[in-house]
Design a protein around this nucleic acid. Structure first.
Length: 277
DNA sequence: CAGAGCTCCTGAATGC
DNA sequence: TGCATTCAGGAGCTCT
């Protein structure tokens, strides 16, 4: 579920709910065998620390506290929601953070692929060291993207999913972006021209921005902080549209291609073989 | 070293 | 209806 837009939506929700001079009162954990879980001792130490800011990097949410950084990755099925004052726990609620303004946050993650970890030095942490650039950062450009993929022997779809090329793009937005750019996902990265890189990056930016505007994509289970669904799934052009007709208009005529699906680098990819070259 | 493939886990959808 | 199988948004690990 959570790719860059969904994590960004949750981050913005957190920023608007957790305002003022807040302290973490307590972190409760209801499942001790989560992946990359903050050690219990550290969890206790974090009680009493101040919440300084909430940021997003790639698909990670970062709680900056006076005692270090809490790093949360939502994996495939994670969500944070604002707990009620007397919070009733649901199935798969694993972590709960209590704040000094009586609010609390609950991490729910059925598949438990997510992380809830602690790092002292964010930039040098194993999570952040290897991350590529943020696609929406204006200092990133097609030229940089071109030089990072021009020698790679993987499909352009695989290169987009690789967080070293650029971050935040997952399976849905990779398909959507390549469709928008008119590039066939099977094309080899080292055969993509600089000009084509420009249209791919522009498409990635447009798709991600529009999705953020629409509150993210809710397929099965994505919810924002207030447990509302996003709306971008209603704007998918190719994702999950196998055998349906292509929506592209070329010179006022519809493309008339049929959307295909194909497994590329282990994940289902949707594209129009007719208009994606 | 790069790249392919497997793996962690639950639940929804599909097939018999 | 009930049971088995397949598949799902991520990314780290192990092979080759």
């Amino acid at each position: 579920m959570p790719e860059l837009p969904e994590v960004e939506i949750i981050k913005r929700g957190l920023q608007s709910e957790l305002v003022g001079d807040l302290k973490i009162l307590q972190i409760k954990c209801y499942r001790s065998n989560l992946r990359n879980l903050i050690p219990l001792k550290k969890m206790n130490e974090l009680a009493g620390s101040s919440l300084l800011s909430i940021e997003r990097r790639a698909k990670y949410l970062i709680f900056k506290t006076s005692g270090g950084y809490i790093v949360s990755h939502l994996g495939m099925s994670g969500t944070w929601r604002l707990g009620e004052e007397k919070a009733t726990l649901k199935k798969h609620d694993h972590v709960q953070i209590y704040f000094s303004n009586t609010k609390n946050l609950i991490l729910n993650d059925p598949r438990r692929f997510g992380y809830f970890d602690y790092v002292e030095d964010l930039e040098n942490s194993t999570y952040f060291k290897k991350l590529g650039p943020e696609p929406l950062d204006p200092s990133f450009n097609a030229k940089k993207m071109f030089s990072s993929i021009r020698n790679r022997h993987v499909s352009i779809k695989a290169a987009l999913l690789d967080q070293k090329t650029l971050v935040g793009v997952g399976n849905i937005y990779a398909s959507e972006s390549l469709y928008l750019a008119g590039i066939n996902p099977l094309r080899a990265s080292n055969k993509i021209s600089l000009l084509e890189c420009e249209s791919i990056l522009e498409a990635v930016r447009n798709v991600l921005s529009l999705s953020i505007e629409k509150g993210g994509s809710s397929i099965s289970d994505f919810k924002n902080l207030l447990y509302h669904q996003g709306n971008f799934q209603n704007h998918f052009q190719v994702y999950d549209r196998e055998n349906q007709s292509c929506l592209r208009q070329i010179n006022n005529k519809s493309c008339s291609g049929r959307i295909r699906s194909k497994i590329i680098s282990g994940r289902t990819t949707y594209y129009c073989p007719k208009c994606q070259k």
